[in-house]
Amino acid sequence: MTNQHPSWESLVTWVEAGAEGREIAAHLAGCEPCAADAAWLAQTLDAMQGDAAFKAPPDGVRQRAIAAHRQRYPSTGHGKAQRTLPRRSLLYALLAAAALLLFMVVVQRQPSKAAPLVAVTGVEGEVTVTNRDEQTRRVMNGAPLEIGDRLTTGEDGLAIVEFRGNQAAVKVWSNSELSVDDLVVDEGQITALDITCRDGRMKATVAQPMAFTMQAYGNELTTRQGEFEVEYYRDDHSTEVKIEAGELTIANEAGRRTFSEGTELLIWYQTLPGDPLEYPLIYGDETSWRDGEALGLRASQ
């Protein structure tokens, strides 16, 4: 065994090359920590290369499984699995409802300080908000956001923009910018929400049904309910979208198409020969990442 530990980089190269190289092999035989590093690398690279071993079901199959829940639990939220209340409990429930109604009537007569419709939570590092008058302030946990405000996270910044009652939330990673453009409230519930992802990476969760729209780098992303992540790549001006729950409709110059959860997309712009304009291309999920079908590429006139 040689006394000199191999560098991490040389260990990576050694594992990639199929563990050929006697000097490193001899060292690993007598160096438990280095052997553990090599074992981790081998297992991880193996897992990456065997990625298809855990294949996702086709979209149609997944959608049928999701639809089964909709049939069982229609939008009222009362499914077969929910127990019917015993009669005495029903009486208590009615009394409780009456008390709550009375309480609400009393409370509504008092001048109240309502919870903000939009608030910033989970603040870490540098997070600032710039209002319509271009005044910038640092924000703390619980700070409200107004329509027209732009939230920016610094190098070490992280924040969650939460919409009333957890109806929707957007996690904003570092070096990102989000603006709240518009929202519609009906009987205390947000029914429509427009935001813009101006830079960086964010994940939107729409927990309750609403008309949710996010503008992101020339793309309009809309959903009724679900969860998706968006990230902008400055290097090649491409946008990555991962749909983790629900359906997401993406519209841009190339057209409009709806994708379901589990789909990962890369959207970027390509200049056609002899065409000064750029048109967006959307490539499908990861399996067809490199040579997937172009979505509605508009031919140059």
Binding site: K55, R62, I66, Y73, G77, Q82, Q225, E227, A245, G262
Partner: peptide
């Protein structure tokens, strides 16, 4: 999911669908 949130059910399926 039991309360009727289809997004949560979709997320649960999404978590385990490959398995």
């Amino acid at each position: 999911s039991l309360a009727g949130n289809n997004g949560a059910w979709a997320a649960l399926i999404g978590r385990y669908e490959r398995l």
